[in-house]
């Protein structure tokens, strides 16, 4: 099997402590195109991996504010201009009475952004991934922990990377095909 046909390497670990220390080693070895997978977010593992904080809050803030201002404009426009009609003695532009809907739509636009941005930023839905071919990887959503290093990584070298993974205490190292 030639190296070019390999997508990457998959290494299995048994518990959060192992993957934590292994991730530190892989990070320190200078790899960039690699990932750790776990059945739950392991506290501190993102730092051990050197992952950057998510930019998601900015998207939420931006779109949330936009949605919020659009709604206030829309309420003022429909009630005050497009269909001016006094009901219950309330002025056409009644800011206090606009607050509830204004507020709800701010929340809705922010939450929709958070929801969709979450999947988009992670590249999901992703129906196929090379790791899915591995039988062992089925337990990533149960109780096993994995590190994958992509062959595309500049530092990737089949033998050396394998050795590194074995050295980090992996209980299993597999080659993944694209």
């Amino acid at each position: 099997m030639s190296e070019s046909k390999i997508w990457g390497l998959l290494a299995q670990y048994e518990n959060p402590a192992e993957i934590y220390h292994a991730s530190e080693k892989v990070r320190d070895a200078g790899y960039e195109k690699w990932d750790a997978c776990a059945p739950f977010p392991v506290h501190g593992l993102d730092k051990a991996m050197g992952a950057k904080p998510s930019k998601l809050p900015w998207a939420v803030l931006l779109i949330g504010l936009t949605g919020s201002s659009l709604m206030l404009f829309f309420e003022s426009y429909t009630s005050g201009y497009a269909y001016p009609f006094i009901v219950g003695g309330k002025p056409l532009f009644s800011l206090p009475a606009f607050v509830p809907v204004w507020y709800e739509m701010s929340v809705l636009s922010s939450c929709l952004t958070a929801f969709f941005a979450n999947w988009i930023m992670s590249g999901l839905p992703e129906p196929y991934h090379p790791a899915f071919a591995s039988k062992a990887f089925e337990r990533v959503t149960d109780d096993k922990f994995f590190i994958m290093i992509e062959a595309e990584d500049a530092k990737f070298d089949l033998e050396k990377t394998k050795a590194l993974l074995a050295d980090t205490g992996a209980t299993l190292v597999e080659e993944l095909k694209p």
Binding site: S23, D35, A36, C37, A38, P39, F40, P41, V42, L45, D46, M49, A51, P53, S54, L56, P57, V60, V107, S110, C111, A114, F115, A117, N118, W119, M121, S122, L124, P125, E126, P127, Y128, H129, A131, F132, F137, V140, T141, F146
Partner: peptide, 23 residues
């Protein structure tokens, strides 16, 4: 959705979850 427990996904996911909770 093809979830594979990637830590890089978990980071964004937890942030999104936190924001949804905060709202």
């Amino acid at each position: 959705l093809g979830w594979r427990g990637s830590m890089r996904h978990w980071v964004t996911y937890e942030k999104a979850y936190q924001i949804l909770a905060a709202f």
